[in-house]
Each structure stands twice: as C-alpha cells, then as structure tokens.
Amino acid sequence: MATALSLTNISVTFTGKSGGGGYTAIKDTTLNIADGEFVSIVGPTGCGKSTLLNIGAGLLKASSGEVKVFGEPLIGLNQQAGYMFQSESLMPWRSALANVTAGLQFRGVEATEAARQGEQWLERVGLNGFGNRYPHELSGGMRKRAALAQMLILDPKIMLMDEPFSALDIQTRQLMENELLQLWETDKKSVVFITHDLEEAISLSDRVIVLAAGPATHPIGEFAIDLPRPRDVAEIRMTPRFLELHAQIWHAMKEEVLKGYAQTKNKVVA
C-alpha cells in the first residue's frame, strides 16, 4: 500500500528563551501512515503529540528529518491534509454554514455552489437546519460536527486530528467517534488521530503508536488493532480481544505515563 504521510528521523528542538540549550520535544521519530490507514498516537500528557501532528501539517518545521506526503517532500503547508484542532477553531463571526464553506471560498468556488455543498455536509454531520447559527449558539458537540464538516468538505486525502473530541462529554464523544468511523468507512482517508485516551485509540484505529514521555519523545511501541470493522465504539469495548489489546498497550504505556506524571509533579514543586 502507498504511504500517505511519512515522517523520517524527525527531531524538533525549540530555541530556549533564556539562552542556554533549547527544549527538545521530539527526537529521531519515524512514522509511516499508509493510504487509507487509521492510526492513533497515544502518549502521556505534554509528550509532544501535537507537535508531531503540526510537523505533519506543515504548520511547524522540524529541526531535522524529512516529511513526505505521497512520496513528495513537504514544502510549506500540507495541502493534502485537513486538520481538526483540539480547541475551538471555528470563526466566531461566521455562521455554521459560512464556516463549513470557508475552505471552498478560499479556493474560489462560486458562492451558490459552495452553499449547496455546505448544506450537504451539514446534513451529513447531522446539522441540517443549523446553518444559520453562529458558533456560540451551538453546543460543544455541534461545533465539533461543524469543524468536521469544514475539514471534510475539501475532501483531504489525510486527516490530522488533535484530540478533537477531548472536550466533549462521554456520550457525545462516543456518538462523534461512531460518526467519524462511518464517514471514514465511506471513502477511506488516512487518519492520524492524537489522543491521550487509550480506549478511544483502540476502538477507532488500525494501528496504535505509543510515544514516550517527553522531553525528546519517540515511539516506544506499535500495536496493530485486529478488531473487526465496522465497529461500534461503545460495544467493542466489551469484547475480550479489546480488553486483551488494552492490557497489552497499557502495559507498554504505564511506565511512560508515570514518568510523565512525575515530571509534571516535579515541575509544580520546583
């Protein structure tokens, strides 16, 4: 299978503010995401998961290493990728419909055509009738749906998702996860899904990559998730194979999570 996104020997060092050495967030990380593959990246809080995703999006330049998108070296922003952010990313001064069609507008698509596609996408994410609402008039879950439609309307080959559902309550979250899987099954895009929630990672993905605690994070484990599809994220959590995988990956993660916890704790004390 073709490789959609490949990060080779990526290191990221942020320049220190008060002179001295910089902070190395990522060290010698190599990741390959196949075309149509759903990959989750899990790791303790603050380990540099988002930094890694920003490298893949082209929002951040790696200090060293190489990024390739469908075999081509990445220059500037990743045009093949859609990005879904953890925090609020909708433009608050635009209605839901105008937010969803923003990408088409930037590409010079004619307004009526953009609105037509926008309405279609609003319907597909369950927001029909809400096109005229402003983001503050929508619930957290609805805003995430709008953000999802905003990204998918451009039909990106790669979806980069940075803990997109972490701010939602557990029920809404499982609903959104199921909907994401359904949308993904219809035209398999490559997905890089960042999360700190191991259950979410396993229930969604084809493959789970575990990162070490920061600084200088790197992958410490990789697990193929051989659960059958289509999946229901709520039900699949009850199956023995899921629990088995969970135990396996948690075993690999545990030490890193404790390490990460100790670091943040020390920082607070110091």
Partner: peptide
C-alpha cells in the same frame, strides 16, 4: 486566536484572504 488562524491556513487561506476573512472581522 492562533487556532482560528491556523485553521484558516489549513483550509487554504492565503495571506490576503487571512487579512480579509480572519484579521479584519476580528479587528472589526
């Protein structure tokens, strides 16, 4: 908001579109 800004960039906004569709409404 840097997130709104990055989001607009990822959606394909060029510099003048960022000015017109993000900075200007925000400043207004």
């Amino acid at each position: 908001s840097p997130v709104v800004l990055n989001n607009a960039r990822m959606l394909g906004a060029n510099a003048s579109q960022l000015l017109r569709y993000v900075y200007l409404p925000s400043a207004t």
